[in-house]
Nucleic acid binder design. Structure first.
Length: 871
RNA sequence: GCCGGUGUGGCGGAACUGGUAGACGCAGCAGACUCAAAAUCUGCCAUGGGUAACCAUGUGUCGGUUCGAUUCCGACCACCGGCACCA
């Protein structure tokens, strides 16, 4: 055995062994219960980043661990290959997105391979392959037939100079990122998927996902946002009838029908028909409506902006009292939620209260607090105003508890056909049309005579031409004569192809199904999907907790309902890993644009006393501003290239650092010293095995022959075995598992003696250490396992059973507290009774000092752990 | 703004079911080896007081429940993730 740990050579040879043995090819017919372990596939941005390394290491540790538990494991990998960055790169370099993407995939695949991941590469797929996206199109057509996909108008960001649609991230402070032009909103026709039809199913099934983190389930439930309420119709007053030229009613949705008698005005969104009718008559309103339409589409902006509105001059009548109520246009009413109109109850809703105060509208108290938190609503706002209570000043409905009042008022409205109870969801339908080139074409043909005609299945896939180069001025597909030209499938006339492509969330909504049968040409999925699904463990960033995971759940349900797959829920267990952080340094020169510096080029000193940070540039010692820790990102230039680490220390060191430094769900702070520490530990493991092996083979272990020190080592080794299995297998934490093996190795270092039983105990302890580390640092363990004289390669070895006899102890330490404070320690047999523990504790010298001769009032004994004496 | 999360030594973190706060590692300090340095090994390492034994304080802040709270409850503060066209 070599004395020096040489990661480059070891990793090369271990990977060659695994390749030669086809060690990780998944087989549906292999023995063992299946285990589908999936990490979120990467966007091929060019190079792997540390978030990927963390994600894929977690998945690989689980995969390798589960193989050792006898499971039949599938761990696939692919590429989320469509998306905006490829178009941006094309604009910057003139390279077609297809070439850029495929080059990136080739490079990143090499990087992934060098990490030693136990992936079945035979199932690799890229979402930009026609073999893959053909089935996006095929399922879209099925959804169209089912009415799940439909067309309506939607709002987009429009850059008037580049004549192009912008993504939200391309809008900076209301201006286009390239042109600086003020962004406009435009309404254009788009395809939507009716995810709202699945809202109840998606929400209800969250309760049946115990393997998901509570916080993700909560986030999804809130996103779907189920609320029970009442639709209320406010009949038009004569002025409104005149303005619209017809009779009718303004419909609002409310969860607080009990406050109906407190309504003092109604508010509508800027896009609401009533607002548009008012705008047509009044230039001031038209200007306000236009201003609201110009603003951001992002919810965060809408929610933080100042609440403003204007009276439309129109009125509606209260459905029960007939009182005329003014109609306002307000920027805080969302056209996309409910009916785009709200009944305003300033006394019992904080937003309405703020608005009414600002515009001097009446505030009418109609709820009495059941805990006497207030008498009459008056500024300033307190949260109690918004709580349910008992109705007052509500005509025939006064004196009812809120819940009862809702029922009674809903019944009354229903009897007058002016309202009905209804369940409302916050969730909106999923708009999938993107006015972009690098995505999956939507399989529609526009015919002058026949309208929008679906492409026949036989003509799928609609291929995306791969030679176009976007230049920022709109979708190049719209200028490609060869792509556009086609015949109408219905009438045969010349027609034009749809140029919108699909949201890339479509691509990632079913890739996990395709991995099970990536070679299937004849159908979207086959029976193998039913064997492997659901994914037993899905691992990915917390940033995907809502959108991707909800869309994937929805898409799978649609496939389920079409009879394509048996499962309805695709992911049985979910692990949401934390972000990888690094220091951020910048400098803002007088000229303006902020410049970021890579942490590699900066020295950071933090004064322990003052906590003052001083950051200087290495090359010239000049000062830069320390911004603190933040997610590694290109824009902040604080990424660490995984290659630098693997080249210097090896993949095992990178893997160990990632797994040891923080538990998987928490964010992980990058630390160069931490990486060196991980490498140091691997060198120690190597040396421990080397020293042992160099002394010649150890004999068989005979428990009866062991000296006390040998038994201690053996106990620690078997405790470690149990702990690591529990940590990885049940708790899904790795840092504590690694810490346990470190302790075992420290114990091996302390253990001495060349007698045969001592050497046998060390052999066993080292075998257990290597076995436990195997899933985490597979290359070094692959080699050390052989050096320890094992014939079966480690990747085929089963986990070892803990020997209960090794765990027994003659004496255990019991902690003694007086009034909850630690005052002494006693030693007792593990099975000692409460009485025995109590009397030994009371007799203890240290404890007696604190008892001060007093009689204990109470003695609490936790067997095997502690005695607490209360005086 | 709304929804979700996090907060423990100089630093990353541990304490799993309410029961010894600080495992394991990093950094630091001291020593051994060395001509020297690196590497390696050994010891120390929450804060304050004390030569020491030991004592007091201490898990973001304030309060509560309990024999006992990092853990449970309430209020607050700071930071992080998501908010529907980044993926």
């Amino acid at each position: 055995m070599q004395e020096r740990y040489d990661p480059a050579a070891i990793e090369r040879s271990a990977q060659a062994d695994w390749d030669a043995q086809r060690a990780f090819v998944a087989d549906e017919n292999a023995p063992g219960e299946k285990f589908y372990c999936l990490s979120m596939f990467p966007y091929p941005s060019g190079r792997l980043h540390m978030g990927h390394v963390r994600n894929y290491t977690i998945g690989d540790v689980l995969s390798r661990f589960m193989r050792m538990q006898g499971r039949n494991v599938l761990q696939p990998m692919g590429w989320d290959a469509f998306g905006l960055p490829a178009e941006n790169a094309a604009m910057a370099n003139g390279v077609p997105p297809a070439k850029w993407t495929r080059d990136n995939i080739a490079y990143m695949k090499g990087q992934l391979k060098s990490l030693g991941l136990s992936i079945d590469w035979g199932r690799e797929l890229a979402t930009c392959d026609p073999d893959y996206y053909k089935w996006n199109q095929w399922l879209f057509l099925r959804m169209l037939e089912q009415g799940i996909a439909y067309k309506k108008t939607g709002v987009v960001n429009w850059d008037p100079i580049d004549q192009t649609v912008l993504a939200n991230e391309q809008v900076i402070d209301g201006r286009g990122w390239r042109t600086g032009a003020l962004v406009e909103k435009r309404e254009i026709p788009m395809y939507y998927l009716r995810i709202t039809g699945y809202a109840e199913a998606l929400r209800g099934a969250l309760d049946e996902l115990p393997g998901w983190p509570e916080r993700v389930r909560a986030m999804q439930a809130n996103w779907i946002g189920q609320s029970y309420g009442v639709d209320v119709d406010f009949p038009y007053a004569p002025d409104t009838q005149a303005a619209l030229g017809k009779d009718g009613a303004l419909r609002v949705f409310t969860t607080r029908a009990d406050t109906l008698f407190g309504v003092t005005y109604v508010a509508v969104a800027a896009e609401h028909p009533l607002a548009l009718a008012a705008a047509a008559r009044d230039a001031g309103i038209a200007a306000f409506v236009e201003e609201c339409r110009r603003g951001s589409t992002m919810e965060a902006d809408l929610a933080t902006q100042e609440k403003r509105g204007l009276p439309t001059g129109l009125h509606v009548r209260h459905p029960l009292t007939g009182e005329p109520l003014p109609v306002f246009v307000a920027n805080y009413v969302l056209m996309t939620y409910g009916e785009g109109a709200v009944m305003a109850v300033p006394a019992h809703d904080e937003r309405d209260f703020e608005f009414a105060l600002k515009y001097a509208l009446p505030v009418r108290t109609v709820i009495a607090s059941t805990r006497a938190a207030y008498q009459r609503v008056a500024p300033p706002w307190i949260d109690a105003y918004g709580e349910p209570g008992v109705t007052v000043d509500s005509g025939a409905f006064s004196g009812l508890a809120s819940a009862a009042a809702v029922e009674a008022i809903a019944a009354e409205l229903a009897s007058r056909t002016l309202g009905a109870k209804r369940v409302q969801y916050r969730l909106r339908d999923w708009g999938i049309s993107r006015q972009r080139y690098w995505g999956c074409p939507i399989p529609i043909i526009h015919c002058e005579a026949c309208g929008a005609v679906p492409v026949p299945d036989a003509d799928l896939p609609v291929r995306l031409p791969e030679d176009l180069v976007p230049d920022g001025s709109g979708n190049p597909l719209a200028k490609s004569a060869s792509f556009l030209a086609c015949k109408c499938p219905r009438c045969g006339a010349d027609a034009r192809r749809e140029t919108d492509t699909m949201d890339t969330f479509v691509d990632s909504s079913w890739y996990f199904l395709r991995f099970t049968c990536a070679d299937q040409q004849g159908s979207m999925v086959d029976a193998r999907a039913d064997y492997w699904l659901p994914v037993d463990h899905y691992i990915g960033g917390i940033e995907h907790a809502i959108l991707h995971l909800l869309y994937a759940r929805f898409w799978t349900r649609v496939m389920h309902d079409l009879g394509l797959v048996r499962v309805a829920e695709p992911f049985a267990n979910l692990l949401t890993q934390g972000m990888v952080l690094n220091h951020i340094f910048h400098r803002t020169p007088a000229s303006g644009r902020r410049e970021y510096f890579n942490p590699l080029d900066v020295d950071l000193v933090i004064d322990a006393a003052t906590k003052q940070a001083t950051a200087t540039l290495r090359k010239d010692g000049s000062l830069v501003t320390y911004e603190g820790l933040g997610t590694m990102s290109k824009s902040r230039n604080n990424g660490v290239d995984p290659n630098l680490i693997t080249e210097k220390f090896g993949a095992d060191t990178a893997r160990l650092f990632m797994m040891f430094t923080a538990p998987p769900e928490q964010s992980l702070e990058w630390s160069d010293e931490g990486v060196q520490g991980a490498n140091r530990f691997l060198r120690r493991v190597w040396k421990a095995v080397y020293d042992h092996v160099a002394a010649g083979p150890a004999g068989a272990l005979d428990a009866a022959q062991l000296a006390p020190a040998d038994r201690d080592l053996r106990r620690i080794a078997h405790q470690t075995l149990s702990k690591v299995r529990d940590d990885i297998g049940r708790r899904r934490v790795f840092n504590t598992a690694i810490a346990a093996v470190m302790e075992l190795l420290n114990a091996v270092g302390r253990h001495a003696g060349d007698a045969a039983p001592a050497r046998a105990a060390r052999q066993e302890a080292l075998e257990i250490a290597v076995l436990c580390l195997g899933p985490i640092v597979p290359h070094i363990c692959h080699t050390l396992w052989q050096e320890l004289g094992q014939r079966e390669p480690l990747y085929r070895v089963r986990w070892r059973e803990t020997d209960p006899a090794a765990l027994t102890q003659e004496q255990v330490e019991i902690v003694v507290q007086v009034n909850g404070k630690l005052r002494g320690r006693i030693s007792a047999a593990p099975g000692a009774s409460d009485e025995e523990l109590r009397s030994v504790a009371l007799a203890d010298e240290a404890v007696r000092r604190f008892l001060d001769g007093k009689e204990p009032k109470k003695v609490i004994v936790v067997r095997g752990k502690l005695v607490n004496i209360v005086i």
